[in-house]
Design a protein around this nucleic acid. Structure first.
Lengths: 249, 249
DNA sequence: GCATGCGATTAACCTCGATCATGACGATTC
DNA sequence: GAATCGTCATGATCGAGGTTAATCGCATGC
């Protein structure tokens, strides 16, 4: 199903079969989009949202000189601009990074869901807040890490996210991105990303060639990028949620 | 009322009287908190959220060395950790920056609201996505602006937000923050924030003394920080939403 | 009266990453 | 086969901002 990867293995909020079916039924059309196409522009009024089925998409802001700062990248299973449902106007552009397959969900369908299925509504709400949590990790990355740490953190995050989508084995994965893309994500220049990539390779942490990332030493890479996957809210039987005063569940 | 400033003058989503009353009724307690206190820690399980009535609060992530990166500051009227309602666990700490008055809303009340009032639910959802939009502006700030631009952008944003809360006249406002706080927001050192503040003063853009900001040249300051308030979704009869293919309304 | 402490300020020094430039390699097009 | 373009690679130079440290102003407390 098109929604199979949506909220997969997320702590406590994975969809029930009925909920998934309802969401699937909300899809009006699916289509393929070529690489590097703009799907939605900042300020546009939207009455539908986009579920990413295959490929990689991004959201970004432009500066005065036309340079971009990516604020999110989206992987298969992500509801790319679900936040357009309550917001209606986006504050950024949305585009593809690679060829992509997308499914369209009209907002009128979401109206129906929010009227009838409060539990599913909370899960959709959760999905948009997961993106916000990733924004916060990116803020940490840009504000507190040096260039090497930023790239390391980004690779760690993407590895975990792709793994939960079943698209990485945890050791290597294909990311259709160039060094210039990574630069726009990490707030660096492509020249410097190139040097960072070389450094990471020489230190035996990871390699990045032809859009393919290979993790050589996951622990060291995570340490270098101060990466802790807790903010991704992924179910992992091996690492239960942190201790706290939570009632059992 | 305690909720008077919540979603005030936000494009198309201000609360109806009945909705505001319902939210007001959802408040269980109010209390005052002293400055620099932690309200919630990362990972904790939460069954209530906090509406900020008076004062300034922040959300932040710690790096390995104990340095903090602020990911949000909250002003009176903000529903500081409403995102804890769907998320249950936060990925960051929440604390006060100044003495504050807060109102507590138990999640069971929000359960009831989401069951019975889908329209209000969408507005609450909107409020959490507004915070995400601000996250994105902060990402732009950290990723694409230099030190002077970052501080300029932050002062512009805060001015507009405080103005919509009725706490700034657009020319000057009191922000209980130190230069060190601004450093944690802008990903800089306090020493450099000091240099930036001097520069902004010497250039006649704004001053920052004793936690008070005075805007000397709003247009120049906005230009220097590449600030465009669209992402704050504030109703402003003087500046209608950007042109697009939206059906009339 | 003095001690204490926080925040602002300023200087000296140095590093990280930007900028500018050049070239290699492979894929595409004509 | 030549030309073009996107991506990767690498060197040289420079400047924005970090680091360290010293000082000052001012409030608070004893």
């Amino acid at each position: 199903m098109l929604t199979d990867r949506f909220l997969r293995d997320r702590r406590g909020v994975s969809l029930e079969a009925g909920e998934r079916a309802r969401l699937e039924a909300a899809i009006s059309t699916t289509s393929t989009v070529e690489s590097r196409k703009i799907i939605a522009r900042a300020g546009e009024w939207l009455d539908q949202s986009t579920l990413l089925v295959e490929g990689i998409m991004s959201r970004y802001l432009d500066d005065r000189d036309g340079l971009r700062q990516l604020v999110a990248i989206h992987l298969p299973g992500d509801f790319v601009d679900l936040h357009a449902y309550p917001l209606k106007h986006l504050d950024h552009d949305v585009g593809t990074m690679t060829p992509a397959t997308i499914a369209i969900v009209p907002h009128v369908e979401l109206d129906a869901i929010t009227e009838e299925m409060p539990e599913l509504t909370r899960k959709l709400w959760f999905a948009t807040l997961l993106d916000a949590a990733i924004h916060r990790a990116w803020l940490f990355r840009l504000g507190r890490l040096d260039a090497i740490g930023r790239v390391a953190h980004f690779f760690c995050e993407t590895n975990v996210r792709l793994q939960s989508a079943g698209l990485s084995d945890g050791r290597q994965f294909t990311l259709g991105l160039t060094q210039a893309d990574v630069a726009e994500i990490c707030g660096l220049t492509t020249v410097h990303v190139n040097r960072v990539v070389r450094h990471l390779r020489e230190e035996g942490l990871c390699t990045f060639r032809n859009g393919k990332v290979e993790i050589l030493d996951a622990a060291k890479l995570a340490r270098r990028g101060q990466f802790d996957p807790a903010y991704l809210y992924i179910d992992d039987p091996a690492s239960p949620p942190p201790p706290d005063q939570r009632p059992r569940r």
